[in-house]
């Protein structure tokens, strides 16, 4: 569904909240005293176990219960549920094939980097290798988006009675809230439900607070990552489009356990794959606000750089803030 929609007032991206919960102070720092709509669909069947979160926010809250609503949709609209399952199956296959090709492209890049050759040849070939990876990422992103859109259009998603009914309820609930808090968890479960109910289009002028996987879902491109998994090479992969509330940023929560920041090859490659988007890592306690088209008031956010280094993210437009078009051409580093 492509309809022009008002953007939320502010979108605050935060690091994980379980051990260093800064959400409450950040919310209060924006003079937001509720009511706050909660989206905890990433917790799946634990969606309702939000007592700790509500206590932390210490204001009136309304859990939108998207996970449970989607269960009800599936129960009431069998045709839609069947079409949704078919779409998910197609997406899973696409992800598998993308992963197969991606691992080969990443392995090729690694091999090229180890080879000895005249610098200008090496630079050119390594650059071509990164371009191939970027092309593959972009292809997969487009493929996933096409599948989502075809599903939404073919099923007349937002015209179906059960969806309309829930959207009306959700719009009413949101109208009474001046902020939305989006928790992390299972990013595909969260994304699917936010898309199912067209949450992005229902947001009016609420502030949005999104942490961990929630931050990934509100960005425009979701990148799954883990540099040190127990199996496999740890290839970061595109899951598809997010809600696009914060453009130009790849959100990377849990960097201390998921990223090898001391590995310049990995850090640099990740930054170059998604350039001009900025790869921003959010340790616990980190946050940054997207306001008026810019990222402002960063705290403890880490920016991955193309040269393989990393540094505290500073809200300086010359650093290439989202939307400023400072993409730079693809240069091997």
């Amino acid at each position: 569904m492509v309809t022009p929609t008002p953007r939320p007032r502010d979108v605050v991206l935060l690091g994980a909240q379980r051990w260093d919960s800064t959400l409450g102070s950040v919310v209060r720092g924006l003079d937001c005293d509720g009511p706050i709509a909660l989206i905890t669909a990433g917790w799946r069947d634990r969606e309702d176990e939000d007592e700790e979160l509500r206590n932390h926010l210490a204001c009136k809250t309304v859990n939108l219960r998207l996970y449970h609503r989607s269960d009800e949709v599936n129960a009431r609209d069998g045709d839609l549920a069947k079409a949704h399952r078919a779409k998910q199956t197609k997406l899973r296959h696409k992800q598998d094939f993308y992963r197969i090709r991606l691992e080969h492209e990443l392995a090729a890049n690694h091999v090229i980097r180890q080879r000895r050759a005249p610098p200008e040849v090496l630079e050119e070939e390594e650059g071509a290798s990164v371009a191939a990876i970027r092309a593959l990422d972009a292809y997969h992103y487009d493929q996933c988006e096409r599948i989502h859109q075809e599903f939404e259009e073919a099923e007349g998603l937002y015209e179906r009675p059960v969806i309309k009914e829930h959207r009306e309820q959700l719009a009413e609930a949101l109208a009474g809230c001046n902020a939305v808090a989006i928790a992390g968890g299972h990013v595909a479960a969260l994304l699917n439900r936010m898309r199912l109910f067209g949450i992005r289009e229902l947001l009016t002028n609420q502030s949005v607070f999104a942490w961990s996987g929630g931050g990934m879902v509100v960005s425009e491109r979701i990148v799954l990552f883990h540099d040190s998994p127990p199996q496999g090479p740890g290839a970061s992969e595109v899951l598809g489009a997010g809600l696009g509330l914060v453009p130009g940023v790849v959100v990377l929560p849990h960097p201390r356990t998921r990223l090898r920041l001391d590995d310049r090859e990995r850090v640099g490659l990740l930054a170059r794959r998604f350039d001009p988007a900025q790869c921003l890592a959010f340790p616990e306690g980190a946050h940054v606000t997207y306001q008026g088209g810019e990222l402002v008031r960063p705290s403890s956010v880490i920016r991955l750089r193309r040269d393989g280094s990393y540094a505290p993210f500073e809200a300086d437009p010359s650093e290439g803030n989202p939307g400023d078009g400072n993409s730079g051409e693809e240069q091997p580093t």
Binding site: A16, G42, G184, G185, H186, V187, H226, Q231, E237, P253
Partner: peptide, 18 residues
Amino acid sequence: SREGLSWLFPGPLLMIYE
């Protein structure tokens, strides 16, 4: 045990960010 269990039962670490 980590190598064995995570190969036999791969976990959801790529999909879950709490």
